[in-house]
């Protein structure tokens, strides 16, 4: 089995995987980082979004071997010293989550939105940028508010 080595949330990790192992399976099953979820199998729902080399990707649509040598950030890697990242805090403050299942992917996507669009986000931009993340609980209203508030907080 091929060996993979990558840096996940600042930690060097390695392992042997079947080539058919998806990045999300490696994260969830080998590393037990179960914050990243699987909600579909067609690359539509975005519950599995993580950052690879600083960019959002759907970890269900990337082989673990493809991430060999990469820096990977998951939802577990955002909080520092026990305090939540401003985007995580914004989701809490704005009730941007209900069942919590889509939430890690939403937060990781939100950070990618801020990285590309800055801290002052209008509603239309956020809604368009969330195209690849499906939520059944919130009706998106409070997710949009959360992303806007989180973006603003990140700029302060």
């Amino acid at each position: 089995m091929p060996a993979v080595a990558m840096n996940v949330n600042g930690n060097a990790v390695s392992g042997e995987v079947e080539p058919r192992t998806l990045l999300v399976q490696f994260l969830r099953e080998s590393l037990r980082l179960t914050g990243t979820h699987v909600g579909c199998d067609t690359s539509q729902c975005g519950a599995c979004v993580v950052h690879v080399n600083g960019k959002s990707v759907k970890s269900c649509t990337m082989l673990a071997v493809m991430a060999d040598g990469c820096d990977v950030t998951t939802i577990e890697g955002l909080a520092t010293d026990g305090s939540m990242h401003p985007m995580q805090q914004a989701f809490m403050d704005n009730h941007g989550l209900q069942c919590g299942f889509c939430t890690p992917g939403m937060v990781m996507t939100a950070l990618d939105i801020v990285n590309r669009n800055g801290n002052d986000l209008n509603e239309a931009t956020v809604r368009k940028e969330l195209e690849g993340n499906i939520c059944r609980c919130t009706g998106y209203h409070n997710i949009v508010k959360s992303v806007q508030a989180g973006a603003k907080a990140m700029g302060e």
Partner: peptide, 20 residues
């Protein structure tokens, strides 16, 4: 603000498939 949010937001929810 919800008590349950923190665990979901930091990736520490405990859904059935998370249990091994």
């Amino acid at each position: 603000r919800r008590k349950e949010d923190k665990r979901f937001l930091i990736g520490k929810g405990n859904y059935t498939d998370d249990i091994n």
